[in-house]
Design a protein around this nucleic acid. Structure first.
Lengths: 230, 230
DNA sequence: CGGCGATTTGACATCGCTCAACGCTCGTGG
DNA sequence: CCACGAGCGTTGAGCGATGTCAAATCGCCG
């Protein structure tokens, strides 16, 4: 019971992740960013949630085997597939693990709620600022992002989809952030120059992400990552 | 173990629900609509999720005792408060109940994801149409909405917040829906004249709500409601 | 009747989208 | 080494969708 079997896979570009084996394996993000949108909604522009290393976008499969998420790699990505069955057994085994998994599930809805109020009630500038703050906070929480830089293998158009904005307008918005001396964006790396001001502008409150000094969800995420990689 | 204690409460108008006792009781919607937004985000316009009878907006408290949602009544509402502890014990007692509760939690993120793609990628007309379709589907799933009418004790401004639109624009959009012969809206009741066309216009696919012919989540919602009211 | 909240309407401002074009960088093949 | 094309970032022009403000109307209730 101490080891979960897993299977590592490299995915590049804007490739889809694991459409076939989907039903019996969960996908742990090990490196890079993964976008997830609910399958079936094939409509053009969609605002998916984005996942960082340590996340398990389709963790819900543990409880709902019919859950289908369309996941895609934003830039080069390393993912690990873990059998759902193993996770289920793990959950049955210990009530602590059960609680942890549920917390992870909950964390997901926190983020969604958050993203919802982001696209629903902020203008372009604040939306992008908010997304950057959130990304930073989440990376920081799992030990990445020690400096003020966040790697950005994805394109501006991708950013647009996350914020519900067109690629063109994203560009202009980013330029505005640059002019204000808040961020730099060079060669696939975004540097947050003035994170405090960025957060103020975005109305970003890390509290409702449960991320920063957080003791439960994120830690569990991380521990989970270790467990699967061990 | 067969009965959960509970406490019924009537709330009217745009009143907040249970800010004080929040931490140790969950709130089951019995009658009417309840809006829920994550606490702390006191910013003006927010797009909360909306909950219908049978829902437990703050069910997450079972696993995260610090979860705080600002709930409010949209029109007259009846809610039942159930001690979190009782629910926890219930969950510990049976793995089926555990699975059911997790499914309910999951259903919540489905709805959020859905709402996200709604405000993120549709224009005003489609957003409103989509919201109406969703509301109908959810009411129908719990046995309300036998006809094509959905009670609407809330104001157009409320509808606006749900869709991320201004009150004025909501009004114009509703009028457009009326002109197209899709809906009527008289005296606190919305009547869906042409639900098929409405769904087409909205790109509404009940599938990703897990609601209509659904065998798990919604039924459990309902069963839950019964359990608590019994 | 008076008053209040909700709906409606009009005028106007603004934001963000679309279309189209251009430049830049990089990898690929001649 | 150079030509070329592809993908991405950038820029400009025009416009449609939506927000804001203000006022009129309607309906309900005291």
């Amino acid at each position: 019971m101490s080891k979960l079997p897993y299977r590592i896979e490299n995915v590049g570009g804007h490739q889809p992740i694991a459409a076939e084996t989907a039903s019996h394996e969960c996908c742990l993000v090990v490196k890079g960013y993964v976008s997830a949108r609910s399958a079936g909604s094939t409509q053009s522009m969609q605002i998916p949630s984005i996942h960082v290393p340590g996340d398990v976008p389709d963790l819900g499969k543990i409880y709902d085997s019919e859950l289908e998420l369309e996941m895609a790699a934003l830039g080069a990505v390393v993912v690990a597939f873990v059998p759902v069955r193993g996770l289920r057994e793990l959950a049955d085994y210990s009530s602590n693990i059960r609680a942890g998994l549920s917390l992870l599930l909950l964390a997901d809805s926190y983020m969604l709620r958050n993203a919802l109020s982001n696209v629903g009630s902020r203008n372009a500038l604040a939306r992008v600022a908010h997304l950057l703050c959130e990304l930073y906070a989440r990376l920081h929480a799992v030990g990445l992002a020690r400096t003020e830089e966040i790697p950005c293998p994805f394109t501006q158009a991708d950013l647009g989809e996350m914020c519900g904005l067109s690629a063109v307008h994203i560009n202009r918005t980013v330029q505005q952030l640059r002019e204000r001396g808040l961020v730099e964006w060079h060669s696939r790396v975004i540097r947050l120059i003035d994170r405090a001001e960025l957060a103020r502008l975005a109305g970003f409150s890390p509290a409702y992400l449960r991320v920063p000094g957080d003791r439960t969800s994120r830690r569990l995420h991380y521990g989970h990552s270790l467990a699967a990689a061990e």
